[in-house]
Design a binder for these strands. Sequence first.
DNA 1: GCCAACGTTGGC
DNA 2: GCCAACGTTGGC
Length: 157
Amino acid sequence: MTERRYWLLKSEPSDYSFDDLMSEEDQTAEWDGVRNYAARNFLRDDIKVGDGVLYYHSMSKPNAVVGTAVVVKEGYPDDTAWDPDSDHPDPKSTSDSPIWYMVDIKGEKALKNLVTLQQIKATPGLETCSLVRISRLSVHPITQEEWDIIIGLGSGG
DNA sequence: GCCAACGTTGGC
DNA sequence: GCCAACGTTGGC
């Protein structure tokens, strides 16, 4: 019995925004460029096809969850690591022994209302979520309860 | 294996 | 631009 899990993925909108994702063919993109071991482990080991994704804009005005997506391909080697022309090359990672992993996600829909970091910090049930506690991580596991609260806030209810 | 120095992320 | 938090690196 596989249980659906939920994740929060961070991106700087000036780098790759939720609108950029929704503009892709099939609204699908590789989630590449993660160069942090904790985040890598989630991408490689834990994120499965069908898992729910909250798309969060960092370094933005405002910093906020802006939309939802779904995982359509699970952990596979991030080939941008050994592309010297990519944005995040890492010569230690090779196609024979990859270090970094990525997943593919498909954008679903923009939230009706942004759910800002301020709101998240001020909302009972969210104030201890991973995003608040470990702000530097780019991939966060979230619970179903946290997912439900954020979706509720985001749909204006 | 410890720890200091340094680099990066990201909120403010 | 500053600073806190945390990861990585390298000397010992």
